[in-house]
Simulated assay, not measured.
Amino acid sequence: MHVTIPNTQRFNVEADYRNRSFQIDVYQPNLPVPDEGFPVIYLLDGNSTFSTVVDAVRLQSRRPERTEVHPAVVVAIGYPTEEPFATERFYDYTLTEPDFDVTKKWGDRELPAHGGAEEFLAFIENDLKPLIESKYSINKQKQTIFGHSLGGLFVLHTLFTNSQAFQTYIAGSPSIHWNQTAILKEREQFINTKPKLDKTVSLLVAAGEMEGNHASYMLDNAKQLTEELKAVPNLEAAFQIYDNENHISVLPRLINQSLKIALK
């Protein structure tokens, strides 16, 4: 017997690069549509996060006057696989080849292709968003992008290169070390050009306490990057460490905090 999540749909969307096909899962609340439309959360690595986020939104938005979490559409950008992660993410979420030695991680295995972040972002902006907005009632002024690990790196890239694309950016345990030279260059350009954000944009960068022991300096990189962004006008940048959490266990706590920021 197949179990389905209520009020959800699944469909595939073809992209115009690398014969890429994305598995898109969408949840829309079974509630009257607000005059301005529902807020929307776009999830990277959708295979791994969709059900958790949907359950959190469904439960917490039942009493928004208490939780400060309002109903929202959830859009998971995943891949046609039953696994939580797909190797295609290495191309879609990264800017260039890795800046560090990956031989210990990959050994004799072939390193997946890298450097497709621009193409992936163009797919989201030019193909996926218009499709979602044609099928669902979306408030274009309350859009969130959520990414973790390499997905968190992509979220930062999106903020630095297209800060008007979303109003809330969630970068969990961002793999800054993976493309450190490129992402820090983008950060400096973003800060130095003093982007004129029409309205306040929120950024949450977060990681688990146990990631502080990682050879990538995950916590230090994330904290330093966030601190320097606090000087940008109309950018509300926050950094959070979750105690006793590792690179994967951090996700449920990150999701809960993200909803309070994105759907208040």
Score class of each variant (00 low, 15 high):
91 Y>T: 14
163 S>Q: 12
100 F>K: 04
119 E>A: 10
176 I>K: 02
115 G>C: 08
139 N>I: 05
110 E>N: 11
153 L>F: 14
83 E>D: 12
195 P>K: 10
178 W>Y: 14
104 K>F: 05
62 R>F: 12
95 L>R: 10
143 Q>L: 12
139 N>M: 06
74 V>D: 00
169 Y>P: 01
108 D>N: 13
122 A>F: 08
93 Y>S: 10
91 Y>S: 12
74 V>M: 02
87 T>G: 09
86 A>S: 15
60 Q>W: 03
60 Q>M: 14
123 F>C: 03
191 I>A: 08
138 I>H: 01
157 H>K: 14
108 D>I: 13
60 Q>E: 10
68 E>W: 08
77 I>S: 05
78 G>V: 08
124 I>D: 00
106 W>G: 10
114 H>L: 06
183 I>G: 01
130 P>Y: 03
114 H>A: 09
96 T>V: 09
73 V>K: 02
120 F>R: 04
97 E>C: 06
150 L>G: 01
106 W>L: 13
68 E>S: 10
148 H>K: 06
85 F>D: 08
164 Q>R: 11
122 A>T: 15
74 V>I: 14
89 R>I: 12
163 S>N: 11
115 G>K: 14
173 S>W: 02
150 L>S: 05
118 E>D: 15
119 E>Q: 14
162 N>G: 04
124 I>L: 13
58 R>I: 07
123 F>H: 05
106 W>E: 08
118 E>V: 11
100 F>M: 07
124 I>C: 11
151 G>Y: 07
188 E>W: 04
104 K>L: 04
75 V>H: 02
139 N>C: 09
145 I>M: 09
106 W>V: 13
70 H>A: 00
74 V>S: 01
125 E>G: 03
114 H>W: 07
187 R>Q: 15
179 N>A: 04
158 T>V: 12
64 P>N: 03
125 E>H: 11
81 T>A: 13
132 I>S: 02
144 T>H: 07
90 F>H: 15
164 Q>I: 06
114 H>Q: 15
157 H>V: 04
158 T>H: 04
108 D>W: 14
119 E>K: 13
75 V>E: 03
117 A>P: 08
166 F>E: 01
165 A>K: 02
114 H>M: 13
169 Y>E: 02
134 S>R: 01
181 T>G: 07
81 T>P: 06
131 L>P: 01
128 L>R: 06
64 P>G: 00
113 A>G: 09
65 E>D: 15
178 W>I: 01
173 S>Y: 03
76 A>W: 00
175 S>C: 07
83 E>P: 00
102 V>E: 13
180 Q>C: 04
186 E>S: 08
177 H>T: 07
103 T>H: 15
63 R>L: 13
180 Q>T: 08
96 T>F: 03
86 A>H: 11
95 L>K: 10
167 Q>C: 03
101 D>L: 08
88 E>A: 14
189 Q>P: 00
161 T>G: 06
134 S>E: 11
86 A>V: 10
103 T>Q: 14
175 S>Q: 05
192 N>K: 14
74 V>C: 02
128 L>P: 04
88 E>G: 15
81 T>K: 09
139 N>T: 10
89 R>T: 12
97 E>S: 13
88 E>W: 00
67 T>Y: 05
97 E>H: 11
62 R>G: 05
106 W>A: 11
131 L>A: 05
